[in-house]
């Protein structure tokens, strides 16, 4: 298992405070693109503000952010462009309100996707997390709102969680800047490949669907041998997603995976 559970990490590199520079809106010549994804109202914009020093509007209701925002930070001499996205419940839908976020997660080619979740509502948040893990193998789970989880007496074992999801898990309370240094460190390690993720794949699918997905992804892999997320493409084709079908038809697809 290559994944190091962050919370109990004794040996891994420590946060280098001197190496951090918040760059605000300056996103010129970046080395990595980091997407902030997650359900609505989980604190994505708050995390974004903590990392970039910007003041993206936050508010305690789902749907506060509706357009995507960009900002940057520099850590250990590498520049990161951070993209704050509107909240989404799912990548499987085609609803218009979630289009901006869905498209960026699927086609924006972020180096690392940081999935911000509400620690006290982990189960429902995992719906999106598991979907994202189907399409990317560079992700970090930011277990935000830990203070609220504590207030609700909820205990989370980040070590087993990281093991089951196959990605690093960082507990945080973004509003109080807790866990942000660890988050930056983890992001940089995933971006540089010193942490290699082995994302969870959805298991509890009925046999006939599993088989259909298998068959289709074999065909897709024949055509595009390097496709990292053939299973996801298969899911979308089975769903009849016109967007994906068009991409396949027009061939723009190749661009998207290369």
């Amino acid at each position: 298992m290559e994944v190091k559970p962050k919370s109990a990490c004794d040996t891994c590199a420590h946060f280098n405070a001197a190496g951090l520079k918040k760059l605000g809106v300056d996103t010129s010549s970046f080395d990595h693109v980091i997407a902030l994804a997650g359900n609505p109202n989980t604190g994505k914009s708050t995390v974004f503000n903590a990392l970039t020093g910007l003041r993206q509007h936050t508010g305690n209701w789902p749907g506060k952010t509706v357009t995507r925002a960009e900002g940057g930070f520099e850590y250990n001499n590498e520049k990161y462009k951070l993209v704050d996205l509107p909240g989404t419940y799912s990548l499987l839908s085609t609803s218009e309100d979630e289009e901006v976020a869905r498209n960026f997660i699927l086609f924006g080619k972020p180096t690392v996707t940081v999935i911000v979740v509400d620690a006290s509502r982990l189960e429902r948040n995992l719906n999106l997390v598991l979907q994202i893990l189907e399409i990317t193998d560079r992700a970090v789970l930011c277990l935000n709102l830990m203070d609220e989880a504590k207030r609700n007496d909820i205990e989370i074992n980040t070590r087993t969680l990281a093991r089951d999801l196959g990605i690093p898990v960082v507990p945080a309370s973004a509003r109080y800047n807790e866990g942000i240094p660890e988050l930056i460190q983890t992001i940089s390690e995933v971006a540089n490949g010193s942490i290699v993720c082995k994302p969870h794949r959805i298991k509890n699918i009925p046999k006939n669907i599993e088989k259909a997905v298998e068959d289709l992804s074999v065909e897709i892999l024949k055509e595009y041998p390097d496709m990292p997320n053939s299973r996801w493409i298969a899911f979308r084709l089975l769903e009849g997603d016109q967007h994906i079908i068009n991409l396949l038809r027009t061939g723009e697809f190749e661009e998207y995976i290369s």
């Binding site: 074992n157 089951d164 509890n204």
Partner: peptide, 13 residues
């Protein structure tokens, strides 16, 4: 299926 996976994971952690 996805929710079932989620429930399993949550149950452990």
């Amino acid at each position: 299926g996805i929710y079932a996976d989620a429930a399993e994971i949550v149950k452990v952690s």
